[in-house]
Design a protein around this nucleic acid. Structure first.
Length: 256
DNA sequence: ATGACTCCCAGTGGGAGA
């Protein structure tokens, strides 16, 4: 079983690339972030024609998430329980016995901004909700755009980014709190190339210079951890014409 | 370096993203 996450930065623009990627990478589950589409505009028919069942939850201009799966997701929920939030950032469903949560964490903008306060509140609510979900679903995957670089090795310039958004001690502590629920960063279960990023700024030739951050993650529960056989970032779509600024992350689970 | 690019809604600019 393979699961993937990809921040597509507008599904209206990126739909052809998503379909191309799925044709080449027929994963069982794909979580999308930043669809930026209201629900009435979601391209469900094109995705279904590609052989995927799909659930979606969006809004205009910002945010928006979707969950694609080979077999229909069950018990689908949208947004965080326990947080009164107008922003469409979370979608969850059960696929082949695995509880899958796709999440688009708030950016936070700057550590001294109101948006950072929101980011912290949002992560508090996510933490508490994931704890409840784990109690009900021991086999759980939490994946998406976390907007957090967990460690200095996840940052191309750790000195320059020190204390900046995505790299503050507060954000990193929130990431560790999620791990403390019994989740594991699947990417770090394996030896990985140094300078592995999942996002590169559109500006300043950042991709060509491989200046990026690893902020898209797949966390697996302790019950699933023994089944993880691989986790990788697929840089190929970042080389496309009009790419998303993020690359997909893929995890492979051994069949039981 | 308060930049750079891309997307969106708007409307010939500006906010947000990261």
């Amino acid at each position: 079983m393979q699961l993937a996450t990809w921040n597509v930065n507008s599904l209206a623009v990126r739909l052809p690339q998503v379909l191309d990627w799925l044709a080449a990478n027929p994963v069982d589950v794909l979580a999308l972030q930043e669809t930026k589409l209201t629900d009435d505009k979601f391209p469900a028919a094109a995705i279904q024609a590609a052989g995927y069942s799909v659930q979606w939850f969006g809004q205009k201009t910002y945010n928006g998430v979707a969950l694609l799966s080979r077999t229909p997701a069950e018990a689908v929920t949208k947004n965080l329980v326990g947080l009164d939030d107008v922003q469409a950032r979370v979608i969850a469903g059960t696929v082949a016995g695995v509880r899958v949560i796709g999440a688009y964490f708030p950016n936070g903008q700057a550590p001294d901004s109101d948006k950072f306060v929101y980011k912290m509140r949002w992560q508090d609510a996510l933490h508490d909700w994931v704890r409840e979900e784990l109690a009900q679903h021991p086999q759980l995957v939490l994946m998406g755009d976390f907007n957090v670089a967990p460690d200095d090795r996840d940052v191309y310039d750790p000195i320059g980014w020190m204390g900046q958004i995505h790299c503050t001690p507060e954000e990193r502590a929130q990431f560790q709190r999620l791990l403390a629920l019994g989740l594991t960063d699947a990417f770090r279960l394996f030896e990985q190339p140094i300078k592995s990023w999942s996002w590169w700024d559109y500006r300043n030739l950042a991709f060509r210079k491989n200046q990026g951050l690893r902020i898209d993650h797949i966390l697996v529960s302790s019950a699933l951890k023994p089944r993880v056989t691989a986790c990788l970032i697929d840089k190929l779509p970042r080389k496309n014409e009009r790419p998303s600024d993020h690359a997909p992350v893929v995890v492979t689970l051994e069949e039981v």
